[in-house]
């Protein structure tokens, strides 16, 4: 009788576990392309999702960060500048809470691109990272050519950034956190100033990490 009880509990818990996490997958965001081709007389449709284009930037430790350095990680990207008086501090605070949750888990990385390269030199970015309490390269603060960064914001991450002399700080930008998978595809976009959406982001990171775990098996 006792044995039967154990079996029931065991099977129910396995069922619950398999339903809750493994089954769920995140959507693919951005433009989608399909290409039809014939294979062995049958029509095969290949789907291609939007991917982050090639990039190469330098981080707060003068280390080059490019697509290759991120191939084994999912990552969260955003756009900011250190002297930004508007939404950046809240974004940094929210990003910091996500960073703390995954600290030392190199499968999850963070890229914050400065959109004010004139002011945010490498020492300035280094100081910012230190003061925020960020160590190592898991969270990289990236410096790149202004137009290259604006371009990847718009065409890569579906974000925007542009100079505007009329607003405090001189540069305007959107405050989205973009979740990118190991194959450069965009899997989520979250308002970095909204606590609830940032919570959704951490949930989605877990789901995405799980997708890779189940693939490995």
């Amino acid at each position: 009788m006792k044995f039967l009880k154990y079996i029931t509990i065991l099977s129910i818990s396995t069922l619950l576990f398999s339903c809750s996490q493994n089954g769920k997958r995140l959507p693919f965001l951005g433009e989608m392309q399909t290409i039809d081709r014939m294979e062995g007389g049958k029509l095969v449709i290949d789907t291609f999702y939007q991917t982050i284009p090639n990039f190469s930037f330098v981080n707060q430790d003068s280390v080059v960060i490019n697509n290759d350095s991120l191939k084994n990680s999912i990552y969260i990207a955003d756009f900011f500048f250190t002297s930004c008086p508007s939404i950046c501090p809240i974004m940094s605070k929210n990003m910091l809470s996500v960073y703390k949750k995954y600290k030392r888990n190199n499968e999850v990385r963070f890229l914050s691109h400065t959109i004010d390269p004139k002011h945010d030199t490498i020492p300035v970015l280094k100081k910012y990272a230190n003061k925020l309490g960020v160590e190592g390269t898991q969270w990289s603060f990236l410096l790149g050519n202004r137009d290259t960064v604006y371009n990847i914001a718009r065409h890569g991450y579906m974000n925007y950034a542009q100079e505007n002399a009329d607003i405090p700080g001189g540069v305007e930008h959107s405050g989205y956190f973009i979740l990118v998978d190991k194959d450069r595809r965009i899997r989520g976009a979250y308002d970095g100033t909204d606590k609830q959406q940032v919570e959704n982001l951490t949930n989605d990171i877990d789901i995405l990490l799980n997708e890779y775990k189940s693939v490995k098996k």
Binding site: P85, S86, I87, P89, S92, K93, Y128, K131, L132, G133
Partner: peptide, 15 residues
């Protein structure tokens, strides 16, 4: 509140 936050706690060693 953008910088000093709603709860007045600021941001780490920055604010």
């Amino acid at each position: 509140s953008n910088c000093h936050m709603d709860d007045g706690e600021g941001l780490e060693a920055l604010i």
